[in-house]
Design a protein around this nucleic acid. Structure first.
Length: 565
RNA sequence: GCGCCCUUAGCUCAGCAGGAUAGAGCGACAGCCUCCUAAGCUGUAGGCCAGAGGUUCGAAUCCUCUAGGGCGCGCCA
């Protein structure tokens, strides 16, 4: 929390000289100056001008003459701002020594110690291919999990597979009408998808199909043997496909029971709702009325008696709380389900569960194709596996081009290609819609994953070439402007982690890593590290610290950092 | 019709619990490898922050309205 400490010291000093304000008030106002030449920390004095009935410029000047601290190199009033420059020598020495000592633990905090978080992400639908939308949920959720762990939480990662629901009734209908067993065995996902698409196409002409689909789902829910065995088969085939993707992305889960897991518990949920007199009959279905919140009702049971996903989500939430006593339950699910989650949380609240306060929908924008959301039903999707494979191939080409003598080319190509795809998704804010662009995903230059990986590899390369003993590295502090820019970013890392977690926003870390990489690359091109002078070890410490932070930052995004590429 | 999200450089995006001169990347143009990995670095060009009001000493940032785009709104998930 280094940068926060300096802020605190600065605030403390100001409060010391102005009795009418508290340290807290001041600390909130301290900011980072927009331009480097203005200083390292700034305090705008407008706020005090009202209270002291003095012009802010005057206040700044007064403080300038009074403030003195060994950590401040210069204190300078500039107009209504009071700017300070930190003592580069001392600060850089402290920062580098701390990072070297902490290693990959640098930036870890204890905010969540002793608390549980369950996070529901990825959650693809069985019998459908793994779409780009699920990729977003997967990489965002995976990253938030790691960030939460970094903040001390015990995290349980849940893959809430979409393995139940009317869609299976539809699929069974389609399979029985047009399906071919050997074709499904050969290419399960493709074949099941085309059946699903065909079903929706035919159903437009012949709405009776919808009824047949619903009827088959009801049979499935009632335990019909044929329905069950088809369901199990489709499910198994899908899981095989999904695990290929998770292997490529290096994502794991602690709990991967899907919706079907809750079947036996649904009755209890409905009974409870009923006992609480929350259920209301409406047009033949059972609903929870939410008109008091100005929201449409939440459907619990269909008129034919079958359940809906709200019922399953309610049941799952209750189960999860009983099992994990979470402080937060995070759902990384697309923005289009916002209403559903608002309803879900309200129903839990009405049921009297105070823990519903800890439930958070963490939505993300859509992947658009030609400005519209991609639709599985119409078969308008891009297969993730193919995109990943293409990225890896491109990375192989790059290696052949730029570094043909590299060892384990294949492994590195995988790390770089996958890194490009993950980073591309995480660098943008969650909520933004993104137009699907293969070209952008496969870029390796500029603000990309490979750019950061490359920067890391460069740092490693210097450390490889240098002869030094990690344990006896004597750090003397660095005062030149290229080093200082890097140091300032390094000391910000812990604050970035906190912010990123508070907002459930991995993009904060992604952007930070881009900034750090850029600063380090500038440093690299202007300062020759391996020069034999008295600051050599300090420079090596800087390089090492950058390497540590880049690697750890990438890890928090779910991206690996090869030592060579 | 109602609700939620979005609109910043040619393109993709940062910047938003209000603060100093609105920043990157890509693309374009001009440079840098006898020198630690050129997946890099340096420079030039490019902006009425969708529009109009309001709050404020101060608004890209907060509020209201308008326009444009996206997504939802009972038996899909």
């Amino acid at each position: 929390m280094i940068s926060l400490e300096f802020k605190e010291i600065f605030a403390q000093e100001i409060a010391l000289h102005i009795p009418t304000v508290t340290k807290m008030e001041v600390e909130q106002l301290i900011e980072k100056p927009k331009h480097e030449e203005q200083g390292d920390l700034a305090f705008p004095c407008f706020f005090l001008s009202k209270r002291l009935k003095k012009a802010p410029q005057e206040i700044a000047l007064e403080l300038e003459s009074k403030l003195k601290h060994s950590l401040f190199e210069t204190v300078a009033a500039k107009g209504p701002y009071l700017n300070i420059f930190l003592n580069k020598q001392t600060v850089s020495k402290n920062v580098l020594e701390l990072i070297l000592k902490d290693g990959s633990n640098y930036g870890t905090n204890k905010k969540g110690e002793g608390k549980n978080i369950v996070i529901d992400f990825s959650s693809p639908n069985i019998a459908k291919p793994f779409s780009m939308g699920h990729l977003r949920s997967t990489v965002i959720g995976n990253s938030i999990s790691k960030i939460a762990e970094k903040c001390g939480y015990k995290v349980t990662k849940i893959n809430h597979l979409g393995d139940w629901g009317t869609q299976f009734g539809k699929l069974i209908t389609a399979y029985k009408k047009w399906g071919d067993e050997s074709a499904v065995r050969k290419q399960p996902i493709e074949e099941l998808l085309s059946l699903y698409v065909k079903f929706h196409k035919e159903a437009e002409l012949n709405p009776v199909l919808e009824d047949e689909g619903r009827a088959w789902f009801l049979k499935l829910e009632e335990g019909n043997e044929e329905a069950q065995s088809l369901w199990k088969w489709f499910r198994d085939e899908s899981l095989k496909e999904f695990s290929k993707i998770y292997d490529l992305l290096d994502v794991t889960f602690d709990f991967d029971h899907g919706e079907a897991f809750y079947n036996d518990m649904m009755g209890k949920t409905i009974e409870k709702l009923s006992n609480l007199q929350l259920l209301k009959e409406s047009e033949g279905a059972e609903v929870v009325d939410l008109s008091e919140y100005n929201m449409p009702p939440c459907l619990i049971k269909k008129s034919d008696g079958a359940t809906l996903y709200a019922t399953r989500d309610l049941t799952a939430a209750i189960y999860r709380y009983e099992k994990y006593q979470f402080e937060q339950a995070i759902y990384v699910v697309g923005d289009e389900q916002s209403l559903h989650f608002r309803q879900l949380f309200l129903v839990l609240k009405k049921m009297g569960y105070s823990w519903a306060e800890g439930m958070k929908h963490t939505p993300f924008g859509f992947i658009l194709k030609d400005g519209k959301k991609m639709s599985t039903r119409k078969g308008k999707i891009v297969l993730l596996e193919e995109v990943i494979k293409e990225a890896i191939e491109l990375a192989e080409q790059s290696i052949a081009d730029k570094n043909p003598s590299l060892q384990n080319k294949e492994e590195i190509a995988k790390i770089v290609g996958v890194g490009a795809i993950i980073f591309h998704d995480l660098k943008k804010e969650r909520q933004n819609n993104v137009e699907f662009s293969l070209e952008d995903m496969l870029k390796f230059e500029g603000t990309t994953g490979p750019y950061i990986q490359y920067t890391h590899a460069r740092a490693c390369s210097i450390l490889d070439k240098a002869q030094y003993d990690e344990n006896t590295l004597s750090v003397d502090g660095l005062t030149d402007s290229y080093s200082w820019s890097v140091i300032k970013l390094l000391m910000n890392f812990p604050a970035v982690i906190e912010k990123s977690f508070a907002q459930h926003e991995p993009s904060q870390i992604a952007k930070y890593l881009i900034d750090l990489s850029r600063e380090f690359n500038q440093y690299y091109s202007h300062v020759k590290v391996l020069t034999d002078d008295h600051l050599l070890e300090s420079r090596l410490a800087l390089v090492k610290a950058v390497m540590i932070v880049l690697k750890e930052g990438l890890r928090l995004l779910g991206i690996k950092a090869p030592n060579k590429m």
